[in-house]
Design a protein around this nucleic acid. Structure first.
Length: 956
RNA sequence: GCGGGAGUUGCCAAGCCUGGUCAAAGGCGCAGGGCUUAGGACCCUGUCUUUUAGGAGUUCGUGGGUUCAAAUCCCACCUCCCGCACCA
């Protein structure tokens, strides 16, 4: 089957009929949006998932009678494209090869890629083409990119609004930094793609005369256990003026401090040896300790000076031990023997000197031993999570280490006895330019103040009101909101909009994409050239979005007619708020949360987003997709191979929303076959001449109604996998049964019925597999487009419960027959069936009513049956009650209710329908008797075991 | 560490919120049969153990508990996956 042609044909029809263009009208609207793509590569199967989900949603709502707007934009803003362009300029072989072989970019295009916008433009068109081929029902008249001049104006407006409200603030902020490029570095700026991360150290200032000897530590609380300082005798230390104090530090440390906005003036040098034996004053304690030599101290780590806490730091314990053994060399500098570890933390599982315990456990004998790292790690973690400070720590006594750490740090910082230093965690990180990265404290950085308590509170309460699917995600959102702090919202390079009040900054790319959904409503006018960016400024957006300002004035200011302005405003007011926002799960802790925050900050409550739908990612044959694995399939390649609809279905049916969907070849092939069979099937049922309905006809119509009801509920909950499962697979077994019945009876008048059934089914398939549905729809001889047909509405009145009960009875009985044949391995020659006596039927109805009323006590049921003359015969067969109760309990609530409603089924009559089925299946004779039938054929005396819905069976 | 999620019968995966319809949907795989020159596709049957009458037994990460009844509720434990910031 030529899917390319079929899909192309129907896409053209949609296009011709402008089916997805949405303009305000009298209908109710539904505005569905998806996070727009970042065009730095072609989209792959994984990207397709979110868009497909949103498209199904859009198509379903459209069929349900809503005026649906589903637009799309392209996010040019950001740094990765910039980085790629730079790599192209540098002739990066790896990247250029990826463009050629993986992304199949024509050679002459790659040459243009040294210009970032060209990369974005190229992949923009590539992605858009893929979206069209996938059949996404997008209104392309509203497309834009985030570097369009009008969009820039819009973002400027957004930021001015935020600033007016005091939500944009300035502050300092540490970042990974390249001193050569004078720029912050992130993962894709470094050699080896290392994300620079850093740890905050507390620098504690020990006074040495008028000098300060600072030590960097992760454990400020251990200041109470300090017994001495360590310096490396081989290091030549700097004496430097740091702001207003004179510090003695390693030269590496002086450099680092320079990036942390300290004013450093070097005034001299002092060797480590010279410091050894001197005394320093311990802050918070008012006593003095000696400076001692240790070789483990490194000049490039921290300040080059270390405070020694031998009781709790294995390095310190070992160094002190080493020193004492070599005491003879140092006898003149300090009374070493008097220096004893001071234990200040109590931790279960450790003795008085925990460092000693760990060192002995690991068999460490000198300070050069690499196992000391391990020892430190172990002890640090044990003491941090399980330790408590001892009596000798004064006001901090009995506190948990985890708490005390912060309190001590705060106290010594407040008393100006400490400072802060950052160290890169990865050791040396190199920028792509080759320079070694540092941590820099950026001044005057702009932040969005997501810490603002009032703002947070509003967001929390809205999150609790919104529709969020799946429900689990709501919790996650609330945690993210709690955890979110100030976020830097401007950077110094990249594509994007300049900060309106400080043009040195470019608005960061996640901050310029939080309220853009509102922009779709005006993009249509911008694209049509009806409004122009040239002199547009804030009052325009104030008027459109916030209904502020004077129409007359604005109209003359921008030379836009009043009618036009009113139209634009009304269009916004018609479509807003966003009814459903679809997105991948990875955007929960960032984009989606910001999206809520910013809507709440800028728009009035009636325009806050109504619903968020989050989906998981896509796996490739059970594995994560990644470039290095080489298992990324570009979406357009896949469309060429499998067709768009098979891909859509494969992605949707493999997992429910939050689960990762697994895309694999077998699954797609299976689906494709399924679709092709269905199309073939549909070609058979053109004619429509309805005759009077047989029982199986009523049944299939009833089942169709039930299918509609179930599928509709599932889609409304965005349980698309389930809905698709009902429509595509579960209903198939009903069709099979129907065909089996019809064929057994040698009927030939079912084509009209099947055409109706299939048409409804195809309509329900239309949001999921739109092209195949159109094709099937037309093959069935229907007029118009499936995607324009109305979503079927379930009608309870069309459900014939009796036919459902009857068919169920037939199926169950047939199953039983099959089962008996299987177990006994009899080759049947004759099959006889006996239905239950009238009193059993009566009794069954009574038991059913009692069970439905919640009474499952067999004793009371028996009593009440005996009391009734109609069912007094129960005495002959008391086991009947127990079996019947079990029968009933092992049924669904629905089925019980329907049996209750329908009352007794005429089993003898119904079961005679089995004749044709048994004849066609086993080719043998078949008879039905009632248990009470005097003339019955019952050589094995089976008839008496019959129960309602469970006829006795004799196979010979 | 903090936060989120998951562990189901060969594999993937429903079911869990709202306990009985659960030996547990569906797909894949496998086995047998049909169709076919063959392959593919398609259709039927089977696929925990056991059973010569439609039945019985043992299962849903592990161990407890609640209940007439637990894959489903509660507690503890084990294992795995994901996010943790200036980055789209």
């Amino acid at each position: 089957m030529d899917w390319t042609a079929i899909e192309e044909k129907w896409r053209q029809r949609w296009e011709d009929e402008k089916q997805f263009q949405s303009d305000p009208d009298e209908r109710k609207k539904f505005f569905v949006t998806v996070a727009y793509p970042y065009p730095n590569s072609p989209q792959h199967i994984g990207h397709g998932r979110t868009y497909t989900l949103a498209d199904v949603h859009a198509r379903f709502m459209r069929m349900s009678g809503y005026n649906v707007l589903f637009p799309m934009g392209f996010h040019y803003t950001g740094t990765p494209i910039l980085g790629m362009a730079r790599r192209v300029q540098e002739n990066d072989a790896g990247l250029i090869d990826a463009f050629k072989t993986l992304y199949k970019v024509p050679e002459e295009k790659i040459k243009e890629f040294s210009e970032p916008v060209k990369i974005a433009d190229y992949f923009h068109q590539e992605i858009k083409a893929g979206m069209i081929e996938m059949g996404y029902s997008i209104d392309w008249r509203r497309e834009f990119t985030t570097i369009d001049p009008f969009y820039n104006k819009f973002i400027e407006w957004q930021f001015k609004k935020l600033k007016e409200k005091g939500l944009v603030i300035q502050g300092t902020h540490p970042v990974g930094w390249c001193p050569k490029d004078q720029n912050p570095v992130s993962q894709h700026d470094t050699l080896g793609d290392i994300e620079p991360s850093f740890t905050e150290y507390t620098v504690i200032k020990f006074k040495y005369g008028s000098y300060v000897l600072p030590t960097a530590t992760l454990r400020p609380e251990t200041i109470f256990g300090v017994t001495n300082l360590w310096v490396n005798p081989n290091v030549n230390y700097e004496i430097a003026k740091v702001d207003s104090e004179e510090w003695i530090i390693s030269s590496e440390c002086a450099t680092k401090l320079g990036f942390l906005n300290k004013k450093i003036t070097k005034t001299g040098n002092i060797s480590g040896t010279e410091l050894v034996g001197k005394k320093v004053k311990v802050p918070e304690r008012n006593d003095e300790v000696y400076i001692l030599p240790a070789t483990f101290v490194e000049s490039n780590n921290g300040t080059g000076v270390v405070m020694s806490v031998p009781a709790h730091a294995p390095f310190d314990y070992q160094a002190l031990d080493d020193l004492k053994r070599e005491a003879s060399e140092y006898h003149n500098i300090a009374p070493l023997a008097e220096i004893k570890p001071i234990s200040i933390i109590e931790t279960e599982g450790y003795g008085e000197i925990p460092a000693k315990d760990v060192i002995e456990k690991l068999g460490i004998t000198n300070q050069e031993d690499p196992k000391l790292e391990e020892a430190t790690k172990e002890l640090y973690s044990k003491e941090f999570y399980g330790g408590r400070l001892k009596q000798n720590t004064g006001r901090f006594a009995h506190k948990a280490v985890a708490d005390a750490k912060e309190e001590v740090k705060k106290r010594i910082l407040d008393n100006c006895n400490a400072d802060i230093l950052y160290e890169l965690n990865e050791g040396v990180v190199k920028c792509r330019c080759g320079a070694e990265c540092v941590v820099k404290l950026l001044d005057n950085q702009w932040f969005l103040n997501y810490s603002n308590p009032e703002w947070k509170e509003n967001v929390h309460s809205w999150i609790n009101e919104m529709k969020i699917l799946p429900e689990e995600i709501r919790n996650e959102f609330n945690h993210v909101v709690d955890w979110l702090k100030e976020r830097a919202c401007a950077r110094q390079h990249g594509l994007g909009t300049k900060l309106p009040w400080d043009k040195n900054w470019i608005i960061e790319s996640l901050s310029d994409s939080v309220i853009y959904m509102s922009y779709y409503t005006i993009a249509k006018y911008v694209n049509a050239g009806e409004i122009k960016p040239d002199n547009i400024s804030d009052s325009f957006f104030d008027y459109i979005f916030l209904e502020k300002g004077d129409l007359e004035k604005i109209s003359s200011e921008y030379k836009i007619s009043k009618e036009k302005l009113e139209n634009v405003k009304k269009e916004f007011q018609y479509y807003y708020p966003v009814n459903a926002r679809h997105s991948g799960r990875d955007l929960v802790p960032n984009h989606l949360t910001f999206f809520i925050f910013n809507h709440i900050a800028i728009f009035p409550k009636k325009y806050w987003p109504e619903e968020i739908v989050v989906n998981g990612s896509v796996l490739m044959d059970g594995k994560k997709m990644s470039k290095s694995m080489g298992n990324i399939i570009p979406l357009r390649d896949a469309i060429r191979v499998h067709g768009a609809d098979s891909i859509r279905l494969a992605i949707l049916i493999s997992a429910e929303l939050l689960q990762d969907a697994d895309f694999n070849q077998e699954a797609v092939r299976g689906i494709k076959n399924k679709l092709e069979n269905m199309l073939d099937e549909c070609s058979k049922y053109k004619t429509a001449n309805e005759t009077s309905l047989a029982q199986e006809d009523k049944w299939i119509y009833s089942r169709l109604q039930q299918l509609i009801a179930k599928a509709t509920v599932s889609i409304q909950k965005m349980r698309l996998r389930e809905a698709l499962h009902y429509v595509l697979y579960e209903f198939d077994s009903d069709i099979q049964w129907y065909l089996k019945r019809v064929e057994a009876k040698s009927r030939s008048d079912q084509a009209g019925i099947l055409r109706k059934v299939f048409s409804t089914r195809v309509a329900m398939l239309s949001p999921f597999a739109p092209h195949a549905a159109e094709e099937a729809w037309s093959r069935l001889g229907n007029q118009g487009l499936a995607s324009k047909s109305s979503w079927p509405v379930p009608d309870d009145a069309k459900i014939d419960l009796l036919s459902i009960q009857s068919e169920d009875l037939l199926k169950a009985t047939l199953d039983d027959i099959k089962n008996i044949i299987k177990v006994t391995k009899i080759i049947p020659k004759k099959i006889t069936i006996y239905t239950a006596a009238a009193w059993k039927v009566k009794a069954y109805q009574k038991i059913l009513a009692q069970v439905a009323g919640g009474d499952v006590n067999i004793g009371t049921i028996i009593k009440s049956l005996i009391a009734d003359s109609e069912t007094v015969e129960i005495k002959k067969d008391p086991d009947f009650v127990k079996k019947t109760v079990n029968d009933i309990l092992s049924e669904s609530q629905d089925s019980r209710d329907s049996k209750n409603k329908v009352g007794a089924v005429y089993e003898t009559e119904t079961l005679s329908e089995l004749g044709s089925l048994i004849k066609s299946e086993y080719g043998v004779d078949f008879q039905v008797f009632s248990e009470t039938d005097q003339a019955k054929y019952d050589p094995k005396n089976k008839a008496r075991t019959s129960r309602p819905y469970k006829p006795a069976i004799l196979i010979e």
